[in-house]
Design a protein around this nucleic acid. Structure first.
Lengths: 231, 231
DNA sequence: CCCTGAATTTGAACACGTTCAAGAGGGGCG
DNA sequence: CGCCCCTCTTGAACGTGTTCAAATTCAGGG
């Protein structure tokens, strides 16, 4: 229930004329995506079920894929909310990280069937929907902030430089987890849960080890490489 | 100019009747993909330029995306060939790995402009074109074999268990490099080269360090996790 | 030389995402 | 009230990937 970035505020009941129509179309589309999957949901069906003309849907959304972008933003907000309850409770880095990761998958769960299509659009670099694109920087930054919070709010001790760079790496790892989840055909996507529970202690231990003398050069080199690649 | 996997051999001039047509369509499509990009190449244009009816293209290829799969298989063969010259020369693990990775990007280079579309189809888990799908297991296994060769043909000393599991991890890392390359907008994709040159020494060092007492538990845990996730 | 069955080829037709010119509604202003 | 202008709505039309029943080609047997 947080604010949108749109120019209209949600404070009063009377926003721009078409706001209700927009929401109706979006809700209808999301329902059909869940019921029929992405590919088998036609824009004509969305329009018909919402009781508007097909062109009207295109007045509010640039394309069918942009409907998915709204989904992306929505789950992002839910992820934040779900993670916050865990972050308020835990202090250790491991459980905090696990909590954020599990919360992300929790939120995505109802959409597993059509999440493939979601990732399909996300993978195309020219698409504004790519999680790496400039257009997605807002939700991406919010997601990275979540991992930063998991780290800085914890009792973990680590190098200042690593502390700065790690959140983005954790987000990248999260993208990997989501990729695994999308391909995960196990019952209730149990394997993804196992992946999280197995990988978190490893990350936790490696972060602790990074201060060791033998691993210092590796840490340094890694951070240097990242800063090179970032321009 | 290596052999195809098709049942017909290329030795005599008389293969199945339509083999030439098939190749003509494929070559035309690849040329148009390079010239105009994937999205702006219509199947009608491919058919017209190849001098056949549009339905004929669908007789040989199940879909437009399946034309991309042929591209995938083709570059796989070229990758093998390009990597072999490096692997015949080098003995150290680092240079061997770097050679294989650079060879892969070398082969892909001419297609950078339309590689986005390639990755788009590759990301969808339900698609047979996904590098993780059962249908792509042949090229995937060939690619993994390439990394196994880079490792086993080297002088690197490492745990037997790790030696067994590492090639697949290296292939996974290679997928990551390709993903980075697809998004790489730097001139001539220099940054991808920097990524390879920066990451290879790190991997090399970590593999060496994996035998150290402090890192043994981490290695063990990692390998255990992988075997859990593989069923 | 014709006949038969399979391989190949054709192009009109279909469903879908998307566009766009045209209109409807409705509020502010003279 | 009349006029204007901006927001919103419409649905026919376009271009695309794909399908399919029909036509064509061809090798080999009779």
């Amino acid at each position: 229930m947080t604010e949108q970035s749109a120019p209209t505020t949600a404070a009063s009941g009377s926003t721009a004329r078409g706001e209700q129509t927009r929401q109706l179309i979006l809700d209808t589309a999301m329902r059909l995506f869940r019921e029929r999957g992405y590919a088998r949901t036609t824009m004509r069906a969305v329009a018909q079920e919402a009781g508007v003309a097909v062109g009207n849907a295109y007045y509010y959304f640039d394309s069918k894929e942009h409907l998915v972008q709204e989904f992306y933003a929505g789950t992002q907000r839910e992820h934040r909310a779900a993670a916050d309850t865990v972050l308020a409770r835990e202090r250790d880095f491991g459980p905090r990280l696990a909590g954020v990761l599990h919360a992300g998958i929790d939120v995505l769960s109802p959409y597993h069937a059509f999440a493939g299509a979601f990732f399909k659009t996300a993978a195309e670099p020219t698409s504004p929907l790519s999680p790496f694109s400039a257009e997605s920087s807002a939700p991406r930054d919010m997601s990275i902030a979540l991992f930063r919070e998991a780290l800085t709010g914890s009792t973990a001790k680590l190098d200042a430089e690593l502390r700065e760079a790690l959140p983005e790496l954790l987000w990248l790892g999260y993208m990997g987890v989501v990729l695994y989840w999308v391909h995960d055909r196990s019952d209730g996507q149990v394997k993804t849960r196992q992946l999280i529970d197995g990988v978190v202690p490893l990350v936790d231990r490696l972060v602790a080890l990074s201060r060791l003398r033998v691993l210092r050069p590796v840490t340094r080199q890694t951070l240097a490489l990242i800063s090179t690649l970032r321009h």
